[in-house]
Write a protein that binds this DNA or RNA. Structure first.
Length: 561
RNA sequence: UGGGGAAUCGUUCAAUGGUAGGACAGCGGACUCUGACUCCGUCAAUCAAGGUUCGAAUCCUUGUUCCCCAGCCA
């Protein structure tokens, strides 16, 4: 379904591309890439980048490559590669046959490094990490030249070859760019290009003991793939001069250009890889796919749709301002999408027994219910109705406040899709005072329409037939953190929301929900959108995840009191 | 008192010298067999001070605030 789409304002990246196209740069070609490091699961922040890069390629009839930026074997694995592939594909994007790995370029990158040495632009340095730090200087003081800075090209060539052969210990030597130890930009103070690291790589195994650094590998990988616009986040802005320095020396033509945009921050959650890992490892969540996680896999399990996520990524825009996007916008996008396509159903989360004294025992009516009030094309289903029902505990109050329009002593209420019922009496447990059941009567003339006498019934509540209901578990999720910007706190764990998960075991769902397919989504009327959990659902024993609640203006009214 | 970036409604994105606009959030109302959806209305911003100009969010000057950089991570 392609929307004709109101003309969206250009962002600064599209402005740049339009200008490039106008001036004939890159012969009108637009080539981007999404370059994750396969050392973790991708999250909603990556989704912004995915949508941007693939979106640009789509809009300008260009290409977007998926490239694993796997130059540091520590922590990288095929498991993460597979998860990234699955997640990007699920988000709705296609890279054709252009799945690449920086590790496939290791031989070429090595050759580039040799070329740089030959030009006199790189040297092997024997300083260890501590010494190098000392030589680097500070923000206000220039660095000092390494004593190894002026080795001969031949010696550098020899040493670099021996680094590759494994003749030196880890960390004992590096290959460095020969730039400017006095640069005000610390990135340019002879940055390390290669390090020695005896760490098996998940793809190249033990073939290499030296690995290229990001700054060296990334720009050259871009060039090797013919990337025109290399889009990354703001923290790489300082690295751009190095990107350009390397490319200028090693790439003849069609040099890629790096453009930086502000990464996404989302309120009430964290998006830094380090913090996400901590949540998983310390078991504050059940895993990367915990439905509370902002990971793509977590959101998928929660029941978010790719369409909603894409819409969100478009709605937030692209700029260079630091931002903290209100999670309410994400939830809005999810509701907007699901309102359109989720079939309606009824489920009682906290059951309260209702007995219709004037309804024949043993009688069962099959009530035709619309699957979507605005979309007749989604059809109807039959929902059994009988003498004993469950309603939501919240939908009855012995002593209701003002504006409460549900069931209460002396009142009438409409059962959704069924009769108007009237309160008669209530039965309490004598010891605890807890309400056990409520007896009501029904108005048989109101099944398919308003009461003949024209009286108004203020409230509509949902219900299920007690005999026919299927017992379900429902998991209610709330924001993971109780402050808007937990990422700004060093000890972010202290702000975890202790009530981010509520598991409700005895929920009563309408019969039609008994064998709903894992992954399918419904609107439980008056409650919210729910998704059949793919992991824990067993045949006949559904587990539902609450994706997002419906907007609840009653909650706002009652909270104010 | 190093360098690189960014400052526009509560949040976010736009306005590219010519009416400060959209979305989300908020508030009020209409409709309603979902207190949903939908619809209508409404609140609300140019970091500050100077300057240029008929006219400045936009150009200039000075200042302020915030973010990033001293990994052999990306």
């Amino acid at each position: 379904m392609e929307q004709p789409a109101a003309p969206l304002p250009n962002d600064f990246i599209r402005d740049i591309i339009d200008e490039d196209l106008k001036t004939g740069k890159n012969l009108g070609r637009v080539a981007t890439r999404f370059p994750p490091e396969p050392n973790g699961y991708i999250h909603i922040g990556h989704a912004k980048s995915v949508c941007l890069n693939f979106g640009l390629a789509g809009q300008y009839r260009g290409t977007c490559n998926l490239r694993m930026d796997d130059t540091d074997p520590l922590g990288e694995s095929m498991e993460f590669v597979e998860s990234i592939i699955r997640d990007v594909r699920w988000l709705g994007f296609d890279w054709g046959d252009r799945l690449f790995y920086a590790s496939d370029y290791f031989e070429k990158l090595y050759a580039f490094a040799v070329e740089l040495i030959k030009k006199g632009d790189a040297y092997v340095c024997d300083l260890n990490a501590d010494e190098m730090r000392e030589h680097r200087g500070t923000f206000t003081e220039p660095g000092k030249a390494s004593p190894y800075r002026n080795r001969s090209i031949d010696e550098n060539l020899d040493l670099f070859a021996r680094m590759r052969r494994g003749e030196f210990a880890d960390g004992s030597r590096t290959l460095r760019a020969k730039i400017d130890m006095g640069s005000a930009n610390i990135v340019m103070r002879d940055p390390v290009l290669y390090r020695i690291k005896r760490e098996p790589h998940y793809r190249t195994g033990n073939a290499w003991v030296i690995y290229p650094m990001y700054d060296f590998a990334h720009c050259l990988s871009d060039a090797l793939e013919g990337i025109t616009h290399s889009i990354c986040t703001l923290e790489f802005e300082n690295n751009r001069p190095l990107y350009d320095w390397i490319v200028a020396r090693l790439i003849e033509k069609d040099r890629p250009r790096q453009i930086e945009f502000a990464r996404l921050n989302l309120s009430y959650t964290v998006l830094s890889k380090r913090r996400l890992i901590e949540l998983v490892q310390k078991k504050y969540v059940s895993g990367w796919d915990d439905p509370r996680m902002p990971t793509v896999t977590g959101m998928r399990r929660r029941g978010y749709t790719p369409e909603a996520i894409r819409q969100f990524c478009q709605a937030i825009g692209v700029a260079k301002n630091d931002n903290l996007i209100d999670v309410a916008l994400l939830e809005h996008c999810v509701r907007e999408d699901l309102n359109e396509k989720a079939p309606r159903a009824m489920c009682v989360l906290r059951p309260l027994k209702i007995i219709l004294d004037d309804y024949p025992e043993g009688k069962v009516e099959q009530i035709q219910c619309a699957n979507h009030p605005q979309r007749p094309d989604m059809g109807t289903r039959r929902v059994p109705f009988s003498r004993e029902l469950y309603i939501e505990q919240d939908d009855f109050l012995e002593d209701p406040p003002k504006k409460y329009n549900r069931l209460a002593p002396g009142r009438e209420v409409r059962l959704r899709n069924a009769y108007i019922i009237k309160f008669e009496r209530l039965v309490k447990d004598e010891q605890s005072g807890r309400i056990i059941e409520i007896h009501c009567s029904h108005d048989p003339a109101t099944k398919d329409g308003p009461p003949a006498d024209g009286r108004k019934v203020q409230g509509v509540i949902h219900w299920v037939s007690a005999r026919h209901a299927v017992t379900a578990e429902v998991r209610i999720y709330d924001r993971l953190f109780r402050i808007a910007d937990p990422g700004s706190e060093e000890d972010f764990l202290k702000d975890l929301n202790p009530d981010s998960l509520e598991e409700l075991a005895g929920c009563q769902a309408e019969e039609s929900l008994r064998d709903s397919a894992p992954g399918s989504r419904y609107q439980f009327e008056r409650l919210g959108y729910f998704c059949v959990d793919e992991k824990d659902t067993k045949p006949g024993k559904p587990v539902f995840n609450r994706i997002v609640p419906l907007r609840d203006s009653w909650a706002k009214i009652s909270d104010k009191k």
